[in-house]
Nucleic acid binder design. Structure first.
Lengths: 189, 189
DNA sequence: ACGCGATGTATCGCACCGATACATCTGGAA
DNA sequence: TTCCAGATGTATCGGTGCGATACATCGCGT
């Protein structure tokens, strides 16, 4: 997850950790926090995996001098060739994981770099996921309505409304996508 | 978090793990998943802490027989006296943690067992939390609007709308609470 | 000259999630 | 009547991410 987000952000420009976090908050803040506590370990993992590399900012650690207060410069990361590959690869796969709550937002954020077919498939996957959830909630609610105290009820209904809203949003998006490419449709074959 | 939820559910009736999970999904499914992977460890922790105790369902493990295929009965949990105390204690504290994303839903679910003053304080805390977030997002959006691709923009706006909706919802709830107790107000003192 | 808030890197412990394993019970199709 | 699929039920494992915290530097207003 964070991995995909980082790949996407670095795909546009090299960044150091702090900036990365700012961008993360800016684009995905509504859905996930992505604190430093996961960012830095992820950066290390990705560096070890070879997706990203340090790009020597203004560090210029003079070999002789440091030892104490070793003047640590910014650590700027950039995508490697393998990293770019990995990014396209991740963007291409539209599996069930792409439309889970946590994942969907990140995928969506990079839709402009995603294949149109994949876009539609993800949007539809997300929508039916939500519709499932909504039906479950609805029937459960109908079944237990009487026994619920008013707060629990309010909570259920607010939740249901939110899901409804997102479903409508997705439907609009899907239609827009369709209009752009009238030849693509749900069932290939 | 899960701890509070479990205390709340067991406060109404003794339950075993599976049932507990069902209820969790039913009341909080819109916000958190609460899988078994956290439920069972939590139950163990709570048992060790003394908040809950096993209530021997239909286990009736006859001392002599088992060994192989040892007929494992349901493990029904119930609140202990300390557990009840702990529950009221947790319900009473309305700190910043009560209105974070993950926590708020759980607190709200047990509002019928919460002190009216605390209810209002939590609702207001949640609201100003969201308003802060909204302002941040709004100004960031205004600042960067031109540079954003249309998908990122859509995402931002959808997020903003959602926050708006929740703020309105909270405002209504607060007003309702106020009507119920016209003497309570924001600043004590 | 001082200090405070933003910038910047990093780690630690903990909560939780998703997948998985495995066993039992129940009801309907074969 | 047998068989098997799906619901019920308990449990663990690896991994991801979060919140708090620590610490150092930099730019700026006072």
């Amino acid at each position: 997850m964070l991995e995909l987000a980082v790949l996407g952000l670095l795909h546009e420009a090299p960044l150091h950790g702090y900036e990365l976090r700012q961008r993360l908050k800016a684009t995905l803040g509504a859905f996930r926090a992505f604190s430093y506590g996961s960012l830095y370990p992820t950066l290390r993992r990705m560096k070890d995996a070879g997706w990203i590399a340090e790009d020597e900012g203004d560090a210029t650690v003079v070999a002789g001098a440091p030892a104490l207060t070793g003047r640590r410069g910014k650590v700027v990361y950039k995508l490697t060739a393998e990293g770019k590959e990995r990014f396209t690869e991740l963007l291409a796969e539209a599996g069930p994981s792409s439309w889970e709550d946590e994942t969907f937002g990140v995928h969506f954020a990079f839709f402009s770099k995603t294949d149109p077919d994949v876009r539609v498939r993800i949007l539809e996957g997300r929508r039916s996921r939500l519709e499932e959830r909504r039906e479950g909630a609805r029937s459960r609610l109908a079944r237990t309505r009487g026994r619920l105290d008013s707060y629990t009820l309010q909570l259920q209904e607010h939740g249901l409304d939110s899901v409804d809203r997102e479903v409508r949003w997705l439907t609009e998006l899907i239609e827009t996508e369709r209009k752009k490419r009238p030849d693509a449709h749900t069932e290939p074959r």
